[in-house]
């Protein structure tokens, strides 16, 4: 087990370190400038994809809960706490 974890760590480092260096060196070419508009809006769109995916799951969950567990649902049955009337 330890060997596998250790091997995994070494492998991860071997991948991570060069890419960090690569990232650090970006944007240094003279005469060619980064397009900040593109970078910022690109980040915005990536975050929106995440936000809307999670938002669909959460709001879908809320709608399903509301429809499934409403009192008037044909499948609704009393909760186990209702017998004592104490919750």
């Amino acid at each position: 087990m330890k060997v596998i974890i250790g091997f995994g760590l070494v492998l991860a480092l071997l991948i991570v370190l060069p890419s960090v260096q690569n990232v650090m060196a970006a944007g240094d070419t003279p005469g060619e400038y980064l397009d900040r508009k593109e970078l910022i809006w690109g980040l915005f769109y990536r975050l929106m994809i995440v936000a809307f995916t999670v938002g669909t799951v959460v709001s879908g969950m809320i709608v399903w809960l509301v429809l499934r567990f409403r009192e008037s649902n044909p499948k609704a049955k009393p909760t186990s706490y209702e017998a004592e009337g104490n919750w």
Binding site: V23, A26, P30, L34, L39, I40, G42, L47, V50, V54
Partner: peptide, 22 residues
């Protein structure tokens, strides 16, 4: 998810804060 957001934002900020010398 928060780690992903933080890493992405950190990287973009780092790129755009780098002022070209000329």
């Amino acid at each position: 998810l928060m780690c992903y957001v933080g890493a992405e934002a950190w990287n973009v900020e780092r790129l755009i804060e780098h002022v070209p010398e000329d």
